[in-house]
Every structure is written in C-alpha cells, then in structure tokens.
C-alpha cells in the first residue's frame, strides 16, 4: 500500500533549525529564501515526494509541523 502525504508548517513559529530537513527520507523540505517576522528562514515543502511519514514533525523541537496522509 502506498501513501501520499503533505505537511503544513507554521512558518511564523519555525526557527529555521533545519533538523526536519536532515530527517526527511525523501528530501522534500528546504529553507525559504525570505524570512519570517522573527528573521528566520523557515522550512518549506519543496517537492511532491512527501509520504506523510512524520519524521520531520517528530524531530521538530518547536512542534510546528502538522502531517497529513492519504492512501493511494
């Protein structure tokens, strides 16, 4: 069974630490070009390879990632 997923990042609360980027098995996340209101470059979903595994969200110290997943 295959899954397709997506994530929603609260970009104003993201601190750009990049721990999520390092933990994504499919390298779907990257840092934004611009900055949020705190001056941090924030994490963004940058490819459509997300499988909704939640690895990024589990390691996010600020718990700003929500993960959605559907069976396909």
């Amino acid at each position: 069974m295959a899954f397709k997923g997506t994530i929603v990042i609260d970009k104003q609360r993201c601190k750009g630490c990049s721990v999520c980027i390092e933990n994504c098995p499919n390298k779907c996340i990257s840092l934004s070009k611009g900055v949020n209101s705190k001056g941090y470059r924030y994490a963004e979903l940058s490819s459509d390879g997300c499988i909704g595994c939640a690895s990024c969200a589990i390691v996010c110290p600020d718990s700003v990632i929500s993960v959605y997943r559907v069976k396909i």
Binding site: A54, S66, V67
Partner: peptide, 25 residues
C-alpha cells in the same frame, strides 16, 4: 489532503501555544 481526517501527526494538545524560548534546534 489537508483535512482533519487525514491528520496523522501534529503538536500534542498538552503543549501550550507559548513560543519556546530555546535556541533553534
């Protein structure tokens, strides 16, 4: 996909909405 029934992981309800004072990461 972004619908409540598809949510598989998010911030636990027991964590408050306060922004943590810790350094990034």
């Amino acid at each position: 996909m972004i619908k409540p029934e598809n949510l598989v992981y998010g911030k636990p309800a027991l964590l408050t909405d306060n922004v943590m004072h810790y350094c990034p990461g």
